[in-house]
Design a protein around this nucleic acid. Structure first.
Length: 746
DNA sequence: TGATAGGTGTTTTTT
DNA sequence: ACACCTATCA
């Protein structure tokens, strides 16, 4: 442990060794924050805090997993709770279900389920679905929930008919959730916050259980999360939060940046630590990103600095259209690969998921391996959702949304007429759809329909007999009894659709769950699955370029980064309903877009490229695009502009050009210019294993043995030289490129 | 009851 | 451009 402390800088060491009382860590991008809090966790446990008294909350499951891995790598005893706010609350709500007024077998509704429920609520509230878009209403409901507004409060504050309608839908929506014994994502946080507010004993108990609480990405917590943190730490006040106001990018989802800005007011005795030395990026990248972020008005000033040398300039790529842009990015990546850069070191960011398509096409054409880090590719598949709906219904028979989803899947002759009848009858009697099915004729169904409904109820009932069995057994049993395979086979699937493989993958997930949590209940499994996204299973190192949204990029780092689509209405993104000119009212949103760009840029370690297109196909129309205003704000000091656009050729001509670029290697002048530009750059690439190299690092040289870096030369790669004081051979100057140095400590 | 066509809306970003 | 929903027909 002490050896580890030695490898930290002063503020990092302060973070790690702080034990009791509140602490605020303002950690700039790339300042080694994750490392510091991981070490602190280990430090606490090494200094006699039982691991089960430590709670560390991260923003994503992936981050939690990563931290668990790192803590274990430090040989720290296991047992600390490492999770997201949502999964913490899901578990606590199972434990304290009675206090929350729900049953522990509750269902968690994801966005898709929520939309269905909102639609139902709209029907009941007699709001025509055509008049208001359900997703819009849902957004408003979510917003209301995040600000702890009840339907009644919303109705009271309503300014017009539209608002009143929303409030009414909200009321019905809540009713439906209760009837279905279900919670949505927002509820998980809210309900638990209410439990803590209203039950001093639970507060007390959790305070004792979680003696030390750490929260990462605190700038992106919302009000409910703030209340939760406060309640749990009320007694001992051992709350350590880390974050960076400049990286707050989730205000749209209710994140409240004042949580972190006001922390010092809430805890006047808080120890405040600033980490401003950046270990990740070259000076060129850091300087350019800093230039951008200083344009934010609503901001605490902070100066990031690095000891790393300048590195190659940030490149600004102007392209003709999105195909041209994609082809150039792909071409550049091809060059890097040929120069020996592993593809997993490279990433492409974009503002909208929809931008990935063109990039993917270009990568396919160039035969570049890539992976798209999309949120829910797997769990959104119909077959997976259907299977999960069966499981949910078994656990929670009141879950009408799941019931309706599978009542006729696979087809068992229960059509819309029968379903409508069931719904009406269920609603009148206040029962669930499933129990109404079991009523058969008594539900007023015609004999043939009643028979089918009864059969369905029987099927579910028989499956419920297995609830106590290990989770994988239940899953397999359902697949067999429901004859899932048959159902899938009869469905006309498009060629090479790995439908069945997806079902099997869910079985695997269940097996993994069972292994990790011996005797875990099916409810637990379903809750976990509901809170996990595909991106969580996503770990690099598979030799592929990663494609992801800027939001997904948070917390990651890559040696080589491309940000595409740096255009005016795309980054910053302008919504359809936004006025032409950015108004004062939308300034906060505008600044969040700037922070988003900042987050993307600061992911880069060695090389950063920003690109934009002159024209882009948006919603089926080719529109002229202006460059992002951010591209001017990054300054010119460390920026190289590559404007390779040609004067107004037709879009078709460009597609031809982009296509030819890879197929026949034809050599018109334009193309030669592109290739030459790429070759020059490929030489400037600095391998990422040297990213963290700086004075003070310990390195190992195959010939001279271990030594201490005393000075970094300012020469650009590949000429970079460094001075090393070797333990055995004394001081030497080394050309970085030729020495196979290994970094052994910082 | 299921398949198809045409019309409509859609696009932030994610737990 | 595309996905999804609804209305219409077999």
């Amino acid at each position: 442990m002490d050896d580890l402390l030695a490898s930290l800088n002063d503020p990092q060491r302060e973070v790690v060794t702080h034990v009791d009382g509140p602490m605020l860590v303002l950690a700039g991008a790339g300042s080694g924050k994750t490392r510091a809090i991981t070490y602190r966790l280990a430090y606490l446990i090494r200094h006699d805090t039982p691991p089960w008294n430590v709670l560390a909350i991260t923003f994503t499951n992936k981050a939690a997993e990563e931290m668990r891995r790192r803590v274990e790598a430090l040989n720290t005893p296991r047992g600390a709770t490492l999770c997201t706010f949502h999964s913490l609350c899901a578990a606590l709500l199972r434990e304290f279900a009675d206090r929350a007024g729900i049953r522990p077998n509750y269902s968690i509704y994801d966005r898709d389920d929520q939309v269905r429920l909102v639609k139902e609520a709209m029907t009941r509230a007699a709001v025509p679905v055509a008049a208001v878009v359900p997703t819009r209403v849902l957004a408003k409901i979510s917003h209301a929930k995040n600000s702890l507004q009840t339907p009644a409060a919303l109705a009271e504050a309503a300014a017009g008919d539209r608002d009143r309608q929303v409030a009414e839908v909200y009321r019905r929506y809540e009713e439906l959730l209760t009837a279905n014994n279900a919670l949505d994502f927002d509820d998980l946080l809210l309900r638990m916050a209410f439990v803590l507010r209203d039950n001093a004993d639970v507060c007390e108990l959790l305070g004792r259980r979680y003696q030390y609480v750490m929260i990462d990405e605190y700038q992106d917590t919302n009000h409910a999360q703030y209340l939760l943190a406060r309640a749990i730490t009320l007694r001992h006040r051992n709350l350590a939060v880390t974050g960076d106001p400049d990286q707050s990018i989730y205000a749209w989802r209710g994140a409240d940046i004042s949580n972190i800005l006001e922390f010092e007011n809430d805890y006047p005795d808080a120890k405040v630590i600033r980490m401003e030395e950046n270990y990740r990026s070259t000076r060129a990248i850091l300087h350019t990103a800093s230039n951008l972020i200083t344009h934010n008005v609503m901001r605490k000033d902070k100066a990031l600095w690095t000891q790393r040398p300048g590195g190659p300039n940030v490149r600004l790529l102007y392209c003709n259209d999105e195909h041209d842009e994609a082809a150039r990015v792909a071409g550049r990546i091809g060059k890097l690969r040929d120069a020996g850069v592993p593809c997993e070191n490279i990433t492409v960011f974009y503002r909208l998921n929809s931008l990935s398509r063109v990039i993917e096409q270009a990568f396919l054409a160039a035969a570049l391996p890539y992976r798209v880090a999309r949120g829910l590719e797997f769990f959104n598949r119909k077959e997976v959702r259907d299977l999960l709906a069966y499981l949910k219904l078994l656990v929670n028979p009141d879950d009408d949304v799941s019931c309706l989803r599978i009542i006729n899947t696979p087809a068992r002759g229960i059509g819309s007429v029968t379903i409508d009848h069931l719904r009406r009858h269920a609603r009148r009697g206040g029962g669930a759809i499933l129990s109404t099915c079991a009523c058969g004729l008594q539900a007023g169904l015609k004999p043939p329909a009643a028979k089918k409904a009864l059969a369905f109820a029987k099927l579910i009932e028989s499956l419920q007999g297995l609830l106590e069995a290990p989770v994988p057994d239940v899953v397999n049993h359902v697949i067999e009894e429901v004859d899932f395979r048959q159902a899938l086979a009869s469905r006309e699937e498009p060629r090479d659709s790995p439908t069945w493989a997806n079902v099997m993958e869910l079985v695997n997930t269940a097996a993994e769950f069972d292994q990790a949590r011996q005797g875990g209940s099916l409810a637990e499994f379903l809750h976990q699955v509901s809170l996990v996204s595909d991106a969580d299973h996503f770990d690099g190192g598979d030799g592929a370029v990663t494609l992801m949204t800027l939001h997904a990029a948070k917390g990651l780092e890559f040696p080589v980064v491309f940000i595409v689509g740096c255009e005016d209405s795309l980054l910053p993104l302008k919504r359809g309903d936004e006025p032409d000119k950015w108004s004062q009212a939308s300034r906060a949103r505008y600044e969040e877009e700037r922070r988003l760009a900042f987050v993307g840029m600061t992911r880069a370690m060695d090389e950063l490229t920003l690109s934009c297109a002159r024209r882009r196909m948006v919603r089926g129309r080719t529109t002229p695009q202006a460059a992002s205003p951010f591209l001017e704000e990054i300054g010119t000091d460390f920026v190289t502009v590559e404007d390779l656009t040609t004067p107004a050729p037709s879009a078709a001509a460009h597609r031809r050009l982009a296509g030819r670029f890879y197929t026949d290697g034809s050599s018109d002048a334009d193309q030669r210019r592109i290739i030459e530009a790429m070759e020059v750059d490929a030489e400037q690439y600095v391998p990422s294993q040297y990213t963290y190299l700086r004075p003070g690092c310990r390195v190992y040289h195959p010939k001279f043995g271990p030594g201490l870096v005393t000075n970094m030369g300012t020469q650009r790669w590949p000429d970079t030289r460094i001075d090393v004081l070797f333990d055995d051979c004394g001081p030497k100057r080394i050309v970085l490129k030729h020495a196979d140095l290994e970094l052994i400590g910082q």
